[in-house]
């Protein structure tokens, strides 16, 4: 028996919007720790990792570890029928081939049940080792989204270079080139607007903007985004979900041949 009750149903809606363009079908894993997912995009270039910890739910019952295959587009469609302030409950009986999403409005005078078929999905689970990254940038999530969107109108890839002074985003295309530098900030009064750089070594890596733009669908989940890079590893873009966990995107770099 599985029963997960989330007071902020809008959060689950945002989580689905942040994943559905990248991944079609995925297994949600439910355990006493929380509700999680790990899935790759169809070309195996990017990976998304989601964790919603059990403590973040108002009620969390998961009698045994269970993996539920879902089509993320269909799940997003069902969740779009919930109001942003609705309480959302996920329910599944042991061995059942469907999951129920229950939506309750804040005044609790409207209750809706949506039942969705589960699917069998063969998915590869990758082991992601803990790593020390050479450069970590924390910056406003909206600013990062704006930069990725702007640069993708000029070119297909972005070179991200981190130095002690700041982070530079560069692209080139048929019409010309573009460079955006975000300097490290030193203010302390508005931490949500800060650009913070933790650097062991300067890093310069090239990534496909198409993927970065798809990751920035998670922007409504967090005010800040953390970008971790090492020259020999995929980059990690993390949006922390307050009080619940995180959504992390891993993206393999491009290399000069």
């Amino acid at each position: 028996m599985l029963e997960l009750r989330l007071l902020q149903g809008g959060l689950l809606k945002k989580v689905l919007e942040a994943m559905k363009d990248l991944v079609n079908d995925a297994n949600f894993d439910c355990s006493p720790t929380g509700f999680s997912l790990q899935a790759m995009d169809s070309s195996h270039v990017a990976l998304v990792s989601l964790l919603l910890r059990s403590e973040g739910f108002e009620h969390y019952r998961c009698d045994r570890n269970v993996s539920m295959g879902m089509n993320l587009n269909n799940m997003a469609k069902m969740l779009r029928c919930a109001g942003n302030d609705d309480i959302v409950t996920l329910k599944a009986d042991d061995g059942s081939d469907c999951i129920t999403f229950m939506f309750e409005n804040p005044s609790q005078d409207k209750i809706a049940d949506f039942e969705m078929k589960l699917m069998d999905i063969d998915s590869e689970h990758l082991g992601i080792p803990d790593a020390e990254y050479q450069s970590i940038v924390r910056m406003p999530a909206a600013e990062f989204a704006r930069i990725c969107r702007d640069l993708s109108t000029i070119g297909d890839t972005v070179l991200i270079s981190v130095s002690k002074e700041g982070v530079q985003f560069s692209t080139r295309g048929d019409m010309g080139t573009a460079n955006i530098v975000c300097r490290r900030t030193t203010t302390v009064d508005k931490p949500e607007e800060d650009v913070i750089i933790e650097m062991e070594e300067p890093v310069s890596l090239t990534f496909a903007l198409r993927y970065l733009n798809s990751f920035t669908k998670a922007t409504p989940l967090a005010t800040q985004v953390t970008i971790s890079m090492s020259s020999d590893l995929p980059m990690v873009i993390e949006y922390r979900i307050e009080g619940m966990g995180y959504i992390r995107y891993y993206l393999a770099p491009k290399i000069d041949e």
Binding site: V45, L126, P234, Y250, K254, I255, E257
Partner: peptide, 14 residues
């Protein structure tokens, strides 16, 4: 030419 690497070339299957 920038060659796209795959994520599976970095992480091992569990």
């Amino acid at each position: 030419v920038n060659q796209q690497r795959q994520i599976t070339s970095f992480f091992t299957k569990k």
